[in-house]
Computed example of a mutant assay.
Amino acid sequence: MPKLSSTSAPATPVPAQEPLPDVGGDSQRSEPRSGWRPHDDAGHRNEVVLAGRVTAEPAVRELPSGTHLVTWRISVIRPAADQRPNQPADPITCVSFHPSIEDATRGWRIGDLVQVSGALRRRFWRSPNGSSSVIEVEARNAQRVTAAGSGHTAREPDHQPK
């Protein structure tokens, strides 16, 4: 997995990496990965790490079950080689059901540099036009790295569900 880099965020050490397990087939591909353990014998993996600027402040919604859902959006700049005309960055919606992340994101403002890790999730619902879906990052960890407008790194502790 390639290491994320940002000119405004401090470098993060990369843990020791190990090759993917051989899961059969003709592929002799071996990719490095860090600290990951397979969820099943097939070696499936759903892991996302993002660093970007907040473009939609966190909003909390109470679901009919009583659970709180916090939703926010970040913009992640693409490397120069991957940028398309009129799309230098990718807007990514993040969600979480964890109260600790709801608390951690409460003070986030547009322009804050944040780091989020979690998994991609596809959510489905029925609309007047038929079935709809969206792919979001379901956050397990979230932290503000730098507050908007401040020139210094204000790294807060990781907020992980207990």
Rank of each mutant, 00 (worst) to 15 (best):
M1L: 14
M1T: 13
M1D: 14
L4R: 15
S6I: 07
S6T: 11
T7S: 14
T7A: 08
S8Y: 10
A9M: 03
P10H: 07
P13T: 08
V14C: 06
P15W: 13
P15C: 13
E18Q: 13
P19G: 14
L20H: 10
P21L: 00
D22C: 04
S27P: 13
R29S: 15
S30E: 08
S30H: 13
E31D: 12
R33Y: 12
S34L: 05
W36V: 11
W36T: 10
D40K: 09
H44W: 14
V49M: 04
R53F: 09
A56H: 01
P58G: 12
V60P: 06
R61G: 06
E62W: 00
P64K: 02
G66Y: 05
H68S: 13
V70Q: 07
T71P: 07
T71S: 14
I74W: 14
I74K: 08
S75N: 12
V76W: 05
V76F: 14
V76S: 15
V76D: 15
R78G: 10
P79I: 00
D82R: 03
P85E: 15
P85M: 10
N86E: 13
P88R: 12
P88F: 11
I92L: 09
I92D: 05
S96V: 05
F97T: 09
H98P: 02
H98L: 08
A104K: 09
G107L: 06
I110G: 05
I110Y: 09
G111V: 00
D112M: 01
L113T: 10
V114I: 00
S117H: 09
G118M: 00
G118L: 04
A119N: 11
A119L: 07
R122G: 04
R123G: 07
F124W: 15
G130Y: 02
G130H: 03
G130R: 02
S131L: 08
S132Q: 05
S132N: 10
S133H: 08
V134E: 11
V134N: 07
V134K: 08
E138Y: 04
V145T: 09
T146L: 03
T146R: 14
A148K: 10
A148H: 02
G149I: 02
S150C: 11
G151E: 00
H152M: 01
T153N: 06
T153K: 00
R155M: 01
D158W: 01
P161G: 07
P161W: 15
